[in-house]
Amino acid sequence: MPPDAGQMEDGASQHYRALERLYASAPINDKFASRLEISGEGLSRLTFSITEDVYHAAGAAHGTIYFKMLDDAAFYAANTLATDRFLLTTSFNLHFTKPVRVGEVIAEGRWVSGKRRVFVAESRLIDQEGDEIGRGTGTFMRSRIALSSLDGYSA
């Protein structure tokens, strides 16, 4: 007996779950306590746990962690619209508004424009007090790398 329509995932949902698996499979993410959730087209949400091991000398998270969180959120929001190819970051602008220390940070990504070769997406970081601590805008380009060729995506 075939599964009913409510049990079958549509193509978009399958793509979103595959992107979540791809994120989790990336070796760089072994270094960061984080989790990706994609709720719909052009949207991503990452939850990061900030610990003192990412601090700079003045006792707050180094800018590289801001970039990682903002870039990942914008990238995955954009890649929800590219179901065949892995996207590459071609440029990214950052704005830091508040230092972050130990705690949970949410990175929200949102696709802005582009559906063929170049995509634009933005992201923002929210600390556990609910304050925006950073914002970014990225440009992403379709690569020659098929998503289906990546182990994490097709697992």
Rank of each mutant, 00 (worst) to 15 (best):
V100K: 01
A24W: 07
G134P: 04
V112M: 11
R116H: 14
L87P: 04
K31T: 15
I50A: 13
I50G: 08
R45D: 07
T97P: 05
P2C: 02
R101H: 14
G6E: 13
Y16D: 00
E108L: 06
P3S: 06
L43D: 14
D127C: 01
F48D: 00
V105H: 09
K115G: 14
E41G: 12
N79M: 09
E9T: 03
G130Q: 05
F48E: 06
F96E: 10
R45P: 03
I50V: 13
I133E: 12
A73T: 09
A12M: 09
R85D: 15
E37L: 13
L150M: 03
E41M: 14
A58N: 00
I38C: 02
L125G: 05
V120G: 07
R135E: 02
Q7M: 09
G40C: 07
E129H: 08
S149R: 06
G114K: 11
T137R: 12
R85K: 12
H56Y: 02
S49Y: 02
G134H: 11
G152T: 09
R144G: 01
D131I: 07
A24S: 13
H95N: 12
L94G: 06
M1L: 10
G63C: 06
R124W: 07
I28K: 09
V100A: 11
T83W: 13
D131R: 06
D151I: 05
D71P: 07
L150A: 00
I133Y: 04
I133W: 11
A57Q: 10
F140G: 08
F140R: 01
F140K: 01
M69V: 02
G11D: 14
S34F: 05
L88K: 11
A5S: 12
Y153I: 06
H62S: 08
T83C: 12
V120M: 09
G114F: 08
T90H: 11
A18P: 11
L87S: 04
A146P: 09
D71A: 07
W111I: 08
L19K: 09
I133A: 14
A12E: 14
T83Q: 15
S13F: 00
R142E: 15
D127K: 02
R21P: 02
S113A: 12
N29S: 03
G136D: 02
H95G: 10
D151M: 08
K115P: 11
L81Y: 15
S113D: 11
F119A: 01
I28L: 12
D151H: 05
L147V: 10
Y16I: 09
T51N: 13
F48M: 04
I65F: 14
G130I: 04
G134V: 10
R21K: 14
F86R: 05
D30T: 15
R45A: 10
T97G: 14
L125Y: 07
Q7G: 10
K98T: 01
Y16W: 15
L36V: 05
G138F: 07
A107N: 03
S143Y: 04
N29L: 05
A24P: 09
S154Y: 04
Y76F: 10
A146Q: 03
E132K: 03
L43K: 14
L70R: 00
R21Q: 11
T89L: 05
R116K: 14
L46H: 03
P27Y: 04
R124S: 01
S148I: 00
V102Y: 07
A73G: 06
S148A: 15
Q7R: 11
H62W: 11
I50L: 15
D131P: 01
N29M: 05
A33K: 12
G59D: 00
D30G: 12
E104M: 12
A26W: 04
E129C: 10
